[in-house]
Amino acid sequence: EPLWIRPDAPSRCTWQLGRPASESPHHHTAPAKSPKILPDILKKIGDTPMVRINKIGKKFGLKCELLAKCEFFNAGGSVKDRISLRMIEDAERDGTLKPGDTIIEPTSGNTGIGLALAAAVRGYRCIIVMPEKMSSEKVDVLRALGAEIVRTPTNARFDSPESHVGVAWRLKNEIPNSHILDQYRNASNPLAHYDTTADEILQQCDGKLDMLVASVGTGGTITGIARKLKEKCPGCRIIGVDPEGSILAEPEELNQTEQTTYEVEGIGYDFIPTVLDRTVVDKWFKSNDEEAFTFARMLIAQEGLLCGGSAGSTVAVAVKAAQELQEGQRCVVILPDSVRNYMTKFLSDRWMLQKGFLKEEDLTEKKPWWWHLRVQELGLSAPLTVLPTITCGHTIEILREKGFDQAPVVDEAGVILGMVTLGNMLSSLLAGKVQPSDQVGKVIYKQFKQIRLTDTLGRLSHILEMDHFALVVHEQIQYHSTGKSSQRQMVFGVVTAIDLLNFVAAQERDQK
């Protein structure tokens, strides 16, 4: 057995438009009618409502009807409940999964919650491996369901041993009777949507819809739904939504950006999952974080739909894509998950301010006199920076000697690579993860907040409520011999709460 199987392995699926269902090699399930009293909570997966979006479509000038398939009504709160249950049931049916076995899954959280929910009911041990950027709410729900959680670096490539995929496979090879159901490759993922989600949409719309818009992560949702719609409703256009920084969209030119990270969760990847059939997507749109969270908040405030950030991405694209539809036509959007997962993220004004998705003037509360002053007023001194090749031991000596707790790590040209902190280095040394002679590049981390000289002290204040420091950066445009230009970030300084307090105190003292 291989040590790991690539999540982007070539698909062996034989589905073709027009091929009889009787030739399918898979076990198919028909939607079942729910009894009045459910035998367990797993029976509350599927049969989610279709809700008309009344205000947002009109606000953006849509002539067509805009409908939302509300997947956050599933038992675990997301569309991923469907595939989690289906993968477990299919693994039980073919004898792969037996009582007492362990389920391991690399996930952005929602599939993990679905699997942990099913594992709690069915009696399996469950280990979820997820990147650090995923919300604390997801972690809390997983723990409450009895799952064990392993976190991995957000910026690790999918084929790196440190990625959530790599760590999951390492655990599988170490733990007896453990299984990775593997949402990236498992046919049960798109089949769950082909058999149930798509049929529900067709039934709820009486077979009449002209466009379907869905955000894409593993691709199982859009693949399964689109294949069924292509068979039953061939005139329906399928629109895929991919965040900026991901590479799922086609044509490839759409993916060209210097951005590699994004805040919206559960969609987009740096590889093409095996289950994603991009041939059934008629057109791709890219979405960005700001519009995703703005539209998610709009869905909550104006439509009462308590959905997550990827739902915002989907609707932001839908109001663009559906401009081509006329009166009497219908566009369906998939709202994948609930706001429950993001209470401390985009639902929080403070978080939105820190990330730059909300401006101070958007909030009406009274601010102190210094709130709208610029960061450049602080008069920061030149920063202490270190090269990635310097040793951890030497870096600790320098920081202690100069009285700093942290320093930016830059390359020879001064471009920011990340940050090192005294606390992080000492804990890594004590844990045996690094040696004093190791290069400081081994303990770089990139989960820090950046701020510009033109940003306000109010925004800085919000950042420092949650973080010990902020890195002050400025952009530099560099022209190359080819005539092309590129933008790079340079370090201007490091600012802490002490710097802000000293500035405010000094100004008030001078005024007296």
Rank of each mutant, 00 (worst) to 15 (best):
R400S: 08
V315W: 02
A407S: 14
K449L: 15
E508F: 13
Q487D: 14
P436L: 12
R452C: 14
L353R: 08
D270N: 04
I334V: 11
V494C: 15
T364F: 11
A316C: 02
N424A: 14
V491I: 14
T482C: 10
T395Y: 11
T385H: 02
V264L: 06
S486V: 09
R374G: 09
E244Y: 10
I498E: 10
L501C: 11
L399C: 08
K446S: 12
V415H: 12
E327I: 02
F295R: 06
K449S: 10
I334S: 04
V386R: 02
T389Q: 02
L430S: 12
N424Y: 04
A497S: 15
K345V: 02
V315Y: 02
M352L: 09
P251N: 04
H462Y: 13
I300T: 02
G414I: 11
P388V: 11
C392H: 04
T454D: 02
L254R: 08
A292S: 06
G418Q: 09
S481D: 09
P408W: 12
G309V: 02
K433T: 10
V420D: 02
L500I: 15
T421I: 12
F293G: 06
D282A: 07
L500N: 08
I416V: 12
K283N: 11
R350F: 05
K355L: 09
V275I: 06
Q354M: 08
L378P: 08
V409Q: 09
L501A: 06
G418N: 08
V241I: 07
T344W: 02
T391E: 15
V440Q: 02
F295W: 12
G414C: 11
N288M: 02
M352W: 02
I498A: 15
V434F: 13
I334R: 09
Y262A: 05
F285S: 10
L305E: 06
A292L: 02
R374Q: 02
H372E: 14
I396E: 08
I272T: 08
L501P: 06
G328V: 08
L299V: 15
T364H: 10
S381C: 02
E327F: 08
V280G: 12
V319L: 10
T421E: 08
R297I: 07
V434P: 11
K442P: 12
N424V: 12
T314M: 06
Q450I: 14
I300C: 04
E365H: 14
L417D: 10
T364D: 02
E361H: 06
E412Y: 10
P368S: 11
M490E: 15
G304C: 02
V473I: 02
Q487P: 07
M298W: 09
S338L: 07
Q439L: 09
K442I: 13
L335I: 02
G266I: 05
V281K: 02
V264H: 02
S313I: 02
E290L: 15
T261L: 06
T496W: 02
T395E: 02
E244W: 10
F293N: 02
Q447V: 09
T385M: 15
D242V: 02
E327Q: 11
V443T: 15
P436A: 10
T454Y: 15
Q478F: 14
K484F: 13
L430P: 15
I238C: 06
L276R: 06
V409G: 09
A470C: 02
P336Y: 05
V317M: 15
A292R: 07
Y262G: 05
I272Y: 09
V386F: 10
V333W: 02
A407T: 14
T344A: 11
A322T: 05
S481V: 15
D277P: 06
G312A: 02
D242T: 07
D455L: 09
G493Q: 02
A296G: 08
E291G: 02
G483T: 12
T274F: 02
A316S: 05
G393P: 06
E327V: 07
D337W: 06
K449H: 02
H468C: 04
E360R: 10
I396V: 11
R297F: 02
G441T: 02
G379L: 02
V339W: 12
F346P: 07
L457T: 02
Y479T: 14
H462V: 13
M466R: 08
L501V: 11
K484Y: 12
Q376N: 10
E253L: 08
L471F: 12
L347V: 05
G432S: 05
A318E: 07
K449A: 15
T294S: 11
K512W: 04
D270F: 04
R488P: 15
E290W: 15
